[in-house]
Design a protein around this nucleic acid. Structure first.
Length: 271
DNA sequence: AGAGGTACCTGGCAGC
DNA sequence: TGCTGCCAGGTACCTC
């Protein structure tokens, strides 16, 4: 479900409710997520003060004085701030108790998400250590992409979805950014000019920032922490629009499969 | 080292 | 109506 904008929207939505809050316990109904939720979540994290919530790539980091809870929403995860007496539904796997009134509730039907505990610097955690730069940071630009792409033959779409290259670009925004930059999704990463890579880096930043500004993309079930949907779906130029006319040239938007993921593009505009 | 495939899991939908 | 097969926003891990 969530790509970087949806995770950032979630972070901004929950932070006012959890920042500087002492947790009043944790309830785990389903421990089997991508990895089993470790016992330290109950024995350590459950009674800490959450100082801040950070985001790195698509990971949310709940920082406390004695360690960090690392949360990933996987394909289908979501977080909601709700009243404590709201009955849990199927797939509501974890509750973080916030004071007397509120609960931060994790729902994840497919259970590809993760909740882990880390007592060292979370950026050194094996899951985070090898991540590429944040796409919205100054470290990410066309020159960086040119350096990384040198002699690589992988298709550009897979290249920008590789979290070691750049963190947080998933299927929707990879499609949209390549359309915006006019680059064919199958083009080899090592055969793209520096000028075009600068356009691509700018397009990735713009697409992600626009999506964050309107609350992310709700395709089927993404909701913000307050329960409202995101509105970027109506801004999508090519994603999930196979057969529709290209908004730029009027040609027909095509759908192909790359690495078992759907790719949408316009053959007239992307080379 | 890079590239490609597989696995994890459930729900929704199209087609029969 | 009910079954089957396919698809879905992610990513670690395996093999070649």
């Amino acid at each position: 479900m969530p790509e970087l904008p949806e995770v950032e929207i979630t972070r901004r939505g929950i932070e006012p409710y959890v920042r500087c809050q002492r947790l009043g316990g944790v309830v785990i109904r389903q421990r089997q997520l991508r990895w089993p939720v470790p016992r330290e979540i109950e024995s350590r994290f459950a009674h800490q003060v959450i100082e801040r919530v950070h985001r790195r790539a698509k990971y949310l980091l709940f920082q406390t004085g004695s360690g960090t809870a690392i949360l990933h929403l996987g394909m289908s995860g979501s977080l909601r701030v709700i009243n404590v007496n709201t009955p849990p539904q199927l797939h509501d796997h974890v509750d973080l108790m916030l004071g007397q009134q509120k609960v931060l509730r994790l729902r994840d039907p497919r259970r590809f998400g993760a909740l882990l505990w880390c007592e060292r610097d979370p950026l050194d955690h094996p899951l985070l250590k090898h991540l590429g730069p944040e796409p919205l940071s100054d470290a990410f630009d066309g020159e960086y992409l040119v350096r990384q792409a040198r002699a690589r033959r992988v298709a550009i779409k897979g290249f920008i979805m590789n979290s070691r290259i750049v963190a947080g670009v998933g299927n929707i925004y990879a499609n949209e950014a390549l359309f915006s930059a006019g680059i064919h999704p199958r083009r080899a990463a090592g055969r793209i000019s520096g000028a075009r890579y600068q356009r691509l880096a700018d397009a990735i930043k713009a697409v992600l920032q626009q999506a964050i500004a309107v609350g992310g993309t709700t395709l089927r079930d993404f909701l913000r922490a307050d329960g409202t949907p995101g509105y970027f779906r109506s801004e999508l130029q090519v994603y999930a629009r196979a057969g529709e006319p290209c908004p730029r040239c009027g040609g027909k938007i095509r759908c192909i499969v790359q690495g078992q993921r759907a790719t949408y593009y316009c053959a007239g505009c992307q080379h």
